[in-house]
């Protein structure tokens, strides 16, 4: 099955991004495809390569980048939400790209299920 994922909250503040990530990993382990993760609202902060969590904490941003690299998951950051919050191409972590809301609607149309994670 093909999944689309939407993440509405930033890393560390809310568990939403963590749960979404664990869901994606479990879906892939089950043989499903995660076509795209769309980051909206404060969720765009998941894409900042400037984040530096302490050594003993999980690295949320790197975790997403690795998922994109290893499993071809398309990580899309909403352009309007990103610009509002200072997320631009120059501080985008590997595997992420900035695009429009059409990418969310498109994955809603193309995927078998769209699952939303937020506050």
């Amino acid at each position: 099955m093909k999944f689309g994922i939407m993440v509405n909250e930033g890393p560390y503040q809310h568990q939403a991004s963590d749960t979404a990530y664990q869901f994606c990993r479990a879906a892939i382990a089950r043989g499903h495809t995660v076509q795209r993760v769309f980051f909206y609202h404060d969720g765009v902060n998941n894409a900042s390569r400037l984040t530096e969590p302490p050594q003993d904490d999980r690295n949320v941003v790197q975790r997403w980048s690795k998922l994109a690299e290893e499993h071809g998951v398309d990580l899309v950051v909403c352009v309007a939400a990103a610009l509002r919050r200072g997320i631009k191409d120059e501080n985008l972590a590997p595997g992420f790209r900035i695009s429009g809301l059409g990418q969310l609607v498109e994955v809603g149309i193309q995927a078998d299920r769209l699952v939303v994670f937020g506050d």
Partner: peptide, 13 residues
């Protein structure tokens, strides 16, 4: 506000 934005784009599709 951001919900409305998605609503409009979805209608455009």
């Amino acid at each position: 506000l951001e919900s409305l934005e998605v609503v409009l784009i979805t209608a455009a599709f």
